[in-house]
Computed example of a mutant assay.
Amino acid sequence: LAPAVLYSGLSAAQHTFVWTKDGIPLTATGGSITVTEPGRYSVTAVNRTTGCEGIASATVGVSSIATATATVGLDFHNNQTITVSVTGGSGIYEYQLDNGAFQDEPYFTNVTEGEHIVIVKDKQGCGESDPIYVYSLDYPRFFTPNADTYNDTWNIKGLRDQPESEIYIFDRYGKIITLIKPSGAGWDGMYNGSPLPATDYWFTLSYRSSDGQMKEFKAHFSLKR
């Protein structure tokens, strides 16, 4: 327990003080006391002139920073969530995502795709955790290959560090349009040198999930012109 100072708020020149811990008298006689052990502390103050007596109490508890982990919900889910688990601590904690406001709930919803930073902080001022880095995996719902440098290609950039990942793109009839890799430039909406029409296209992705297993995911996206 870090040292904590308890103040009576009264003048030692005008009052006498008797401090106790869990009902046991202490040797301190001043208007404040520094404590290093948890317990129920009380002070009885007596006015030297009037003899009036007052009693105040405070509970000092033990708190410590936790060991925290964060996990992301289902890959590619429409409402991505991050859940924080705390072990080994004895305090009351609050949670922060990406330098936002701290909150009491150990989970975050509607998380965007990409890397995020989670911080766990002890409400009693006993410190905060090291940054916890987590990655939320998602895919673009559309792209606009109109050469304006915005959304001109379609890819799943969150998997660019997985050279074994592959994405097959199909038209609505199941015809293979192209094979791309997340580590590459992506699909530009072309087929054999010609632009394909604005419509929905389907894809099959093979990737390595956060549990280390190779998985397959299928969905569709829109090409807009």
Rank of each mutant, 00 (worst) to 15 (best):
A12K: 13
I82D: 03
D104H: 04
P3T: 08
H220K: 14
E53L: 08
G212H: 09
V86Y: 03
K121T: 05
G39I: 07
D75P: 02
A2G: 00
S8C: 06
N146M: 07
V134E: 11
L97W: 03
C126E: 07
F102S: 01
K157C: 00
P25I: 02
A147N: 15
G30Q: 07
P195T: 11
L196C: 04
S85E: 02
E115H: 04
V120L: 09
F221E: 10
G127M: 08
A198N: 08
K121W: 02
S183K: 07
A70C: 05
S64I: 05
N146Q: 08
Y150V: 14
P25K: 01
P3D: 11
H77Q: 06
G89Y: 10
H77Y: 05
G114V: 10
V72C: 10
S64R: 07
L205G: 04
S183A: 14
T204L: 10
N47P: 02
D200W: 00
T149F: 13
T49Y: 13
G158W: 00
D75N: 14
G91K: 04
K215L: 03
G212E: 10
F221S: 10
V62A: 14
G193D: 06
W19S: 01
T204Q: 12
F17T: 10
L6H: 13
I82E: 07
E53N: 09
A13Q: 14
G125F: 06
I156S: 01
P182H: 09
G23A: 11
E113G: 11
Q213V: 14
S206P: 00
G212V: 00
N146W: 08
I82F: 10
Y93M: 03
S136H: 07
P38A: 15
I55E: 04
K157L: 08
A12F: 04
E37L: 15
F217A: 01
S165M: 08
Y191N: 13
S11C: 06
V18M: 11
L159K: 02
E115S: 08
S32N: 15
S11M: 05
G9V: 09
F142Y: 15
T49F: 11
N47A: 03
D200G: 06
G100H: 07
G100K: 04
Y107M: 08
S8K: 09
S210A: 14
L1S: 11
S206D: 14
N110P: 03
Y95T: 02
N155K: 09
R172F: 01
D161L: 02
P163A: 04
F203R: 01
T71L: 11
H77G: 07
Y133R: 05
L179P: 04
T50K: 03
D161K: 04
H15I: 12
Y107T: 10
F76A: 03
K21F: 00
S136C: 15
A28D: 13
V120G: 07
G31P: 15
I180K: 00
L74D: 10
Y41N: 10
I117A: 09
E105A: 14
I169G: 06
I65T: 13
F221V: 01
N78K: 11
N192W: 00
I169Y: 09
G193S: 09
S209G: 12
D211N: 15
E164Q: 09
F17L: 06
T34N: 13
Y207L: 01
G73K: 04
A219F: 08
N192I: 04
E105C: 01
P145Q: 09
A58I: 09
G184N: 08
L97P: 01
